[in-house]
Amino acid sequence: MKQETVDPKQDFMDALDELEKDRGINKEIIIDTIEQALLTAYKKNFGSAQNVRVEVDREDGEVRVFSQRRVVDESDLYDTFLEIELADARKIDPSYELGDIIENEVTPKEFGRIAAQTAKQVVVQRIREAEREIVYNEFIEKETEIVTGEIARATSKTVYVNVGKIEASMPESEQIPGEEYKAGQNIKVYILEVKKTNKGPQIVVSRSHPGLVKRLFEKQVEEIYQGIVQIKSVSREAGSRTKIAVQSLDERIDPIGACVGTKGSRVRAVVDELGGEKIDIINYSEDPAEFISASLSPSKVVRVDVNEEEKTALVVVPDYQLSLAIGKSGQNARLAAKLTNWKIDIKSESQIKEEMELKANEEDIEETLVEDIESTSEVAEVEDIDLGTEVDLDSDIEE
């Protein structure tokens, strides 16, 4: 029985066809890259001083090397390796003209082995680059989204999370303070940044970013996903407390109620995912005073005085609500300022009363001082007039 011979060149071309079909790697681009790599390999191994061109046959995969010489006038001939006189060129083919390129095949017998090794290296490299490009394109579209990943390992500073075909990093600054990360644990992470590097795409993920809270609510609250309820702003101190401002585009739907859910089911799911982080949900308002007042929830507010030009606000609260409005270590006030993007000064009613009384007393004192000064001035004027009159009288008597 006659055994079929296997043509390695044809197998190689078939493999390129498969790569183009299965991985979307353009066959022509690979072949062009192989030709450039073979040109470099030829010059390195054979030290040719000639101009050469390497060609890979698109049908059978045969590799050929051609020397190249430019047709020049006899007076312009400088290098016989690179140039040929017009007269000599026309001995080969009468149709040659000045500037034409004459090619001769100079493929070395042992070049096949080098060609095979080079081609393999190029293909492996192109496959690697293509896979990196695919991963990059996949995740660049997911930037600012959340994905579920599995923790690969955790060091003292960085947590590494497998998110599909790539390992993402979560630096210490993007971790929730106090949260434990163990290998094999599944967690939801926010894709903060996708960068293209020479070593492939690098993905940075976060658990502390405010965007994580926003995306979690989008997944839990259908009205947010549909665009009926909008999250206008988020302020967060990861692991402790978050405030979100929401607004409904449909008067029939309560935005806070939609986010809380039946018996608190929706907000509880978000809280559980964040390890018990407290979440305040407030109504957004275009009126700065209303928005600032709501942002200080759960405290009650007596009044809000706003300075639109300086974007500052004075908030007055009942005495017994002052500590609640400010919050532990100033957290509630701090989050409210971030949420509204206003500078907020919080004072109790008694503090405002004392300031007003002090101001009134200062005004009374100032008014009294002005009156005393004016009175003293009047007396001085009168005394000056009387003194002058006496001098004039004495002068008349003497005369």
Rank of each mutant, 00 (worst) to 15 (best):
V260S: 13
Q226N: 15
E222P: 00
K232W: 01
A245L: 11
Q226D: 15
T242A: 14
K219E: 13
L274E: 02
K263W: 00
G257R: 08
D254Q: 09
V234F: 04
T262P: 02
I228Y: 04
Q230V: 15
P210Q: 11
V270N: 10
E273C: 08
I231S: 07
R236A: 12
G264D: 06
I244M: 14
V229L: 13
S265N: 12
P255Q: 03
V267G: 06
K263M: 08
I228W: 04
E223P: 06
V267S: 08
V229I: 15
L216D: 01
T242V: 15
G264Y: 04
C259T: 05
S233W: 01
P210H: 09
F217Y: 06
P210I: 00
I256E: 03
A245S: 14
G264W: 06
R266G: 03
V234E: 09
E251H: 13
D272R: 13
P255Y: 06
A258K: 07
Q247H: 13
D250L: 13
A269R: 08
K263F: 03
K243S: 12
G211I: 02
R241P: 11
S240T: 15
S235F: 05
L212A: 11
R241H: 11
E223V: 07
I228K: 02
V234K: 06
L249P: 05
G211H: 04
F217E: 02
F217D: 07
I224H: 00
Q247Y: 14
I256S: 01
I231Y: 02
P255E: 07
G261P: 12
V234P: 10
R268L: 06
V213P: 07
Q220L: 02
G239H: 14
A269Q: 12
S240D: 13
E273L: 10
I253L: 14
V270C: 09
Q220S: 13
V260Q: 07
K214T: 03
E273R: 04
G261V: 01
E218D: 09
D254A: 10
K219D: 10
E251I: 14
P255C: 12
I253W: 07
V234G: 12
L216I: 03
R268K: 14
K243V: 12
Y225G: 07
